[in-house]
Design a protein around this nucleic acid. Structure first.
Length: 645
DNA sequence: AGCACGCCGACT
DNA sequence: GTCGGCGTGCTC
């Protein structure tokens, strides 16, 4: 139908999945409406309005009686066409809503910041673009050129000390910037952001660098977003949301350590940075680099299928890694508990020169407790979960349901004393403090984060992922709890352990020593040599046989039992290769089923999930339809099936 | 989500 | 005869 004026197609900013499509509105005479700008539009009843983004303009509409746009919220075109395409692709892949993806991608508006940006000087920066780096030191001579070539997909093996890895990535970004194109680099968390920021500041002029800080305010975030929209090329460095950074001439995307769980978006529709980056690469033809010390299962699968090109250093540059693999029993005369004498001696030597890192697996004081009299493991009376202590003298509490059990008495023998089982960071601090008297002990964990320590002798005891960086690198590292980490009942236990080790090793100077206690066989051999591929490839083969991700794709459907069963059955009916695990009861009437499907059927399954979800939501007579959730390709949902071991 | 439309019981 | 119950369905 030909309309009197121009028509704007608008995506509404709403959480309602049934409204997740374009709506046509009339542009009133004289109203300044541009594609990508924020508008306010009437919905259903005249007085009510909803915010939205103009996606495109048109002359005609299929709808007969159009309402006019109520007002233009801002003239800044914050939703470029490329982001709209990406958001639609991401939503389709996650069987979710495009509006939800846009909410992740576009930060909230800050009026003052926007005014300044709209009034900005649009000339390119006075500073010239940097020159291209010669190449990546320690890698084959043409690797840099190949990594940043348009359309190229690579798995880049980071090597050497942590700053060197960050520098290599910064040089890739600089190579792209030198030819007038933008780069987007996504790191997992605030620690990596600081490390990479240092390296990037050394390579990229500040006029061309936009760091999306972890603790930025809303207006700072909006300023960074608007900077990305500028015509001048830019290098955006940030965490998972920066994968959407709306740079115009995207030359390169880098995802650092794609297996880190921070890359998994916790908000609907739960996209993973790895998948978003891949979709964006497919849409734009930019170069795509996954950089990590240990390849994830996903990368390995892609490399094996020839979809990614593996780029490795000429030589492995690493401190000596020694798996001690000795039992403790006959060592006690020479070394304190937990430390084989070789490791004890090594740590003592290193502590004369500088800081030593101790990596532990568990937070708290002790992950488990047992009756001091009969040795029976203490369990929660309510949920049978293990009891643990956060601090040495703190009350025993259930690790699953947090119920406090004080005073405690043993149901077997009525004993009243508890002894610790296993080691948390607290107990390690207390015991190593005694084993190495007169040495400063620094504790770094989630509750007391430390980013950096000096080069002075100190014992730095950190939980995995919370290791501080040491000025000049650690002189030695002690990696504890290997067996507990590897044997944890999680699909990602092996990968996570290897990544955790290799990260800790990257914080040690090349002349240092690393002692890995408590592991033997293949993992010990792998960590000693730094050659993880045989181990990971065997794991990938096991996943192929067991049909576990990433060999297959999965979608978790949770909510009221009837709805979950209905949706899972509907999807499973598409093809015989699709099967359903579960349903498993989650308590309080909630159920979860997991649909497994091959990659080749991905689009069909995604569409069926979305359609089934929508019809369940629309049929409101089904109570609790709003609690129905679909989570695509999050392997952690499989852990929750086996949790409690 | 809201909000209107719609088709059956107790009230002036 | 009509006010209003909330089941059902739509939102440019």
């Amino acid at each position: 139908v030909k309309q009197g004026g121009q028509v704007a197609r608008v995506i509404l900013d709403t959480r309602l999945p049934q409204l997740d499509r374009l709506f046509d509105y009339l542009i009133p005479e004289g109203m300044d409406v541009l594609p990508g700008c924020r508008v306010s539009v009437p919905l259903r009843s005249g007085a009510r309005t909803t915010p939205g983004f103009v996606v495109e303009l048109a002359d005609t509409s299929d709808v007969s009686a159009l309402q006019p746009i109520s007002s233009v919220i801002s003239t800044a075109a914050v939703l470029p066409a490329e982001l709209w395409d990406l958001a639609r692709a991401v939503a389709a892949r996650q069987a979710g809503s495009t509006a939800d993806v846009l909410r992740l991608a576009i930060p909230g508006r800050s009026v003052r910041v926007e005014q300044a940006w709209l009034a900005r000087d649009q000339d390119p920066p006075a500073v010239p673009l940097p020159s291209a780096p010669e190449g990546l030191w320690g890698y084959p001579h043409d690797s840099l050129q190949r990594l940043v070539q348009p359309g190229q997909r690579s798995a880049f093996a980071l090597t050497g000390e942590i700053d060197r890895g960050a520098q290599a990535v910064a040089q890739m970004a600089r190579a792209v910037l030198s030819r007038g194109e933008s780069a987007v680099v996504v790191v997992p968390d605030w620690r990596d952001l600081r490390t990479f920021q240092r390296a990037f500041q050394a390579e990229i002029p500040e006029e061309y660098l936009s760091v999306w800080d972890a603790d930025a305010t809303a207006s700072q975030r909006y300023r960074g977003y608007l900077r990305a929209l500028d015509a001048a090329p830019v290098v955006v460095l940030g965490r998972r949301h920066s994968v959407y950074a709306p740079v115009s001439s995207l030359g390169l995307m880098v995802v650092v350590d794609d297996a880190d769980e921070s890359h998994q978006e916790p908000l609907a529709p739960y996209p993973h940075v790895r998948d978003v980056a891949l979709l964006r690469h497919q849409h734009t033809g930019s170069a795509l680099v996954f950089a990590s010390r240990v390849p994830s299962m996903n990368l390995l699968r892609w490399v094996d299928r020839g979809y990614l090109t593996a780029v490795a250093a000429n030589h492995l540059e690493r401190p000596r890694v020694i798996p001690t693999a000795l039992s403790l029993s006959h060592e006690q005369a020479t070394a304190p508990a937990r430390l084989p004498s070789q490791a004890y001696q090594g740590v003592q030597d290193a502590l004369r020169e500088g800081p030593v890192l101790v990596q532990v697996f568990r937070a708290g004081f002790a992950p488990g407790l047992a009756c001091a009299r009969c040795r029976e493991a203490a369990r929660c009376v309510k949920c049978r979960g293990p009891l643990s202590r956060q601090t040495e003298s703190g009350p025993p509490a259930c690790r699953w349901c947090a119920k406090v059990h004080a005073p405690w008495s043993c149901p077997q023998c009525q004993g009243r004393e508890l002894r610790p089982l296993g080691y948390g960071v607290g107990r390690t601090v207390s015991e190593l403090g005694k084993a190495f008297p007169r040495v400063a002990v620094i504790r770094a964990d989630g509750a007391t984060p430390v980013y950096e320590v000096s080069g002075k002798p100190a014992l730095v005891i950190a939980t995995r992922g919370a290791e501080p960086v040491a000025a000049g690198g650690y002189h030695a590292a002690l990696l504890l709890d290997g067996a507990a980490m590897v044997n944890r009942g999680s699909l990602t236990a092996l990968e996570d352990t290897l990544r955790g080790w290799e990260h800790a090793i990257s914080l040690v100077r090349e002349s240092g020593r690393v002692f890995v206690t408590d592991v033997d066989d293949d993992p010990a051999l792998a960590v000693a040599t730094g050659s993880y591929h045989p181990l990971l490839r065997a794991e990938l083969q096991a996943r192929e046989q067991l049909r576990l991700p990433p060999a297959v794709r999965i979608a978790a459907v949770s909510g009221p039992r009837e709805l979950v069963l209905g949706l899972a059955d509907r999807v499973a009916g598409i093809a015989p290769e699709i099967d359903v695990l579960g349903p498993v009861s989650l308590g309080s009437g909630q159920t979860r089923s997991i649909v497994r499907f091959p990659y080749a059927l991905g689009e069909q399954v995604q569409e069926a999930l979305r359609a089934g979800f929508l019809s369940a939501v629309l049929a409101k007579r089904m109570a609790g339809a709003s609690r129905l959730r679909v989570v695509v390709d999050n392997p952690r949902v499989l852990d929750e099936l086996t949790e409690g071991t």
